[in-house]
């Protein structure tokens, strides 16, 4: 593992990332203690399928591959996530375990928000929590649309 945690004294600004544009400063301040920066070298694994989803990741730059594994086959990249995008919702959905591997394709910097405090913040400030879900929903919708098109295997037709 080459992923390294950064001390909170770096004061990473969450609202630098488009996902958190427009949130109440109060809400972002509440999250601040739970936010850290992560830096990954190329090929570094961010997390593996089945492990607890302990954080919500926002990509600042670089590229992360989301990989699926099937027994006997090579890992298959089903999506890449780049700057201004976010990774997954397993941190929000019980049982809070990752459904795929995440691996850096190149040097990548991310924000990591600890899942426990983030869920607590959503519960404590429902309006901001709703806003977060609304930001997350289009990400889910896009992934779903992509999955549907992949099922159709349109290029084969």
């Amino acid at each position: 593992m080459t992923a390294t945690g950064s001390p909170p004294s770096d004061r990473p600004r969450l609202d630098d990332h488009p996902f958190f544009h427009g949130f109440e400063p109060e809400f972002l301040r509440r999250l601040e203690p739970a936010v850290s920066e992560r830096t990954l070298d190329p090929d570094a694994i961010l997390f593996r399928e089945g492990t607890p989803a302990r954080a919500f990741y926002l990509v600042r730059d670089g590229k992360i591959a989301l990989e699926l594994h099937s027994p006997g086959g090579p890992p298959l990249t089903i999506q890449t996530v780049g700057p201004r995008e976010v990774i997954g919702w397993s941190w929000l959905v019980p049982p809070h375990r990752w459904r795929f591997d995440a691996r850096a394709l190149k040097a990548t910097r991310l924000f990591a928000i600890e899942a426990g405090p983030l869920r607590a913040a959503i519960d404590a400030e429902p309006l901001q929590g709703l806003r977060l879900l609304r930001q997350l929903l289009p990400v889910l919708a896009e992934r779903l649309e992509m999955a549907r098109v992949q099922v159709l295997d349109v290029h084969r037709r």
Binding site: T77, T80, M146, Q150
Partner: peptide, 23 residues
């Protein structure tokens, strides 16, 4: 260049062409 799915030997994007439009 983006593909629907790839193995480890692919360092490009994976996803729909529409996902590349914002870039």
């Amino acid at each position: 260049v983006t593909v629907d799915a790839a193995g480890r030997d692919w360092y490009g994007d994976v996803g729909l062409v529409t996902a590349r439009l914002p870039d």
